[in-house]
Amino acid sequence: MARAVSLRRRTIATAAAWLIGFLIFFPILWTIITSFKTELEAFSTPPKFLFFEWTTENYGIVQERSNYLRFVSNSLILSIGSTLVALLFAIPAAWAMAFAPGKRTKDLLMWMLSTKMMPPVGALIPVYLIFRDMGLLDSRGGLIAVLFLLNLPIIVWMLYTYFKEIPPEILEAARMDGASLWKELVYVLAPMAVPGIASTLLLNIILAWNEAFWTLNLTTSAAAPLTAFIASYSSPEGLFWAKLSAASTMAIAPILVLGWFAQKQLVRGLTFGAVK
């Protein structure tokens, strides 16, 4: 009997997991379905789920109206660029905090995280003015700087938690073996932290890819990434649901593919090193 109960439980749990998964995925699925409808059917009540005239005309129009590839390349440059720059600063910072902590290291970490608690709109006007005066508006360099600073606290935190899991004696052993600080980082710390660094990298590329507030406010066209591409379809002239959906689908497709292939690293990244 015990077996039967546990089997039933397992079935229920599995069903519940699928249901929750489906609920979370539903908006994305609906967006993808809507992207294949005509503008008229996109509005229809009751909404049509599968039985409508499937069409790809929205994709054609979207592609024609705006240069998709330029947005994609901007998104790639901004997300990867800002993440790499951030890692360059974050790895030494996290190393110092994890292996040579001072009296105020804990406070410093909290303070860094607290900067994420301020609503970004509070800093919009000053940042905008600085960007305007320095001629950084709508430039990739300026945006990389903003995204890099925006995500730096999280990157340092993630790396710090990974580095904390590494026994300090291993680094000390390397020091006894004659490794310089640089060699200790490259030959011992980095290889041991590869999974952590990889998941940090991936998660932050995704965060930067999806970042909409600053990318929308500080760009117009030249440096505009895919978030601006999507936003351009909810224009004052009216909402075009089907085209907006097509644009959204095109915008999330690359990151969806990346996420699919990097699932394992991402789970590790999202649990902040709690799962080994």
Partner: peptide, 16 residues
């Protein structure tokens, strides 16, 4: 440590 010419064996082994 590298310049002192000493070797150390740790309680936790501390292998790479």
């Amino acid at each position: 440590p590298a310049k002192r010419g000493l070797s150390m064996v740790f309680q936790s082994y501390a292998l790479y």
